[in-house]
Simulated scan of single mutants.
Amino acid sequence: MQQVQAVVAKAKGAPVELVTINVPDPGPGEALVKVQACGVCHTDLHYREGGIADDFPFLLGHEAAGVVEAVGPDVTGVEPGDFVVLNWRAVCGECRACKRGELQYCFNTHNATQKMTLEDGTELSPALGIGAFAEKTLVAAGQCTKVDPEARPAAVGLLGCGVMAGLGAAINTGAITRGRSIAVIGCGGVGVAAVAGAALAGASPIIAVDIDPKKLAAAERLGATHTVDSSSTDPVEEIKRICGEVYEGAEGADVVVDAVGRPETWKQAFYARDLAGTVVLVGVPTPEMRLPDLPLQEVFGRGGSLKSSWYGDCLPTRDFPMLVDLYRQGRLDLDAFVTEEIGIGDVEASFEKMHHGDVLRSVVVL
């Protein structure tokens, strides 16, 4: 067992604390990872606010890259010294989805069996089964995805959640391709990643919607062809107008990604899509939120599909190495998502910056 410094949320809404935790040596199927960098994701704030579960105390952090330090018995996929991006979809290989070859839909994913604890023995709940705002963390070996060791940890670690969620929402869930249009509502880290994914796939037009000029500017830098300030313009009508000018007869975008996760933005996405278009919900709603009142005739009459996207429907072993290679080739600018690098004691301050829309990602560098 080792003792390391880590960021813990001990109670709902309370500021996070930097404390000493106990990390067990890896057992069967587990890996100990020395964390090099970990992004501050809005999901971590959701955990702190009690918006995901009530299993306090939480060990926060999950968008991480680092080096495997040790592995437990029977681990064959990774070994000490491997540079890895951590993921929260360590597929089981045994459920119905896995057996029919759709591993990206596995919901029986593995986490470490042993628990990390506070010094007094209180068990910690690691965010998304990872808990990487820590000098070292214990995960299931399947949560470690080997990537190019020359890649920058602060950038590629973001594939562990937000960037992969957005890229995958556009490319995997929305199946965006050349000759198709897309609108992204909400241009935080996940939304801008959806824009970047659409640009990578050759979509056009790529319409970014937000109320914050700084976020719209970031979306333009990552590939948006049009921006819409929804604080002063009806986004539904503007999306329809832009798409109608590019493709004669279009009544909206082929794919609309809701990266906010509120009933109001979901309704905008629903009405902003073309006939037989696709709505992708990737923004994380809170438990009390409900779908807006929509006439069932509208759902039936517009055709198409209404989808949710968990983790961008990614398969880490397939997608992470490919995206890191694109990053290394200069075709995917993951560095653009890193607004600032911070210390492990600065996570609480980064939450405040997130509230004000000042960052795409703060990244803890250890």
Rank of each mutant, 00 (worst) to 15 (best):
V299C: 09
E94T: 15
D148N: 15
C314P: 00
V255C: 11
D333V: 01
S231Q: 08
G166Y: 01
E79Y: 00
T265C: 13
G166T: 02
V255I: 14
E123A: 15
Q104W: 13
R328S: 11
P235L: 11
E79H: 13
R178T: 11
A224W: 09
G345M: 04
C314F: 02
G81E: 05
T145K: 06
C41H: 05
D120W: 10
Q143Y: 07
V84I: 08
V139M: 14
K353V: 00
T145M: 07
Q268P: 03
R302Q: 15
V85T: 14
D54C: 02
A154D: 15
A151L: 06
V192M: 10
G13F: 12
P24L: 05
I176P: 08
Y327C: 09
H226F: 10
P24N: 09
S305F: 00
I21V: 10
P295T: 06
L159C: 04
E79A: 15
D229G: 09
A14C: 03
A6I: 01
T227L: 06
A201V: 01
A219M: 11
L59P: 07
T233A: 02
G81Q: 10
G142Y: 11
A97G: 00
F320W: 12
M354W: 01
A203H: 12
L159D: 04
P15E: 14
V33E: 08
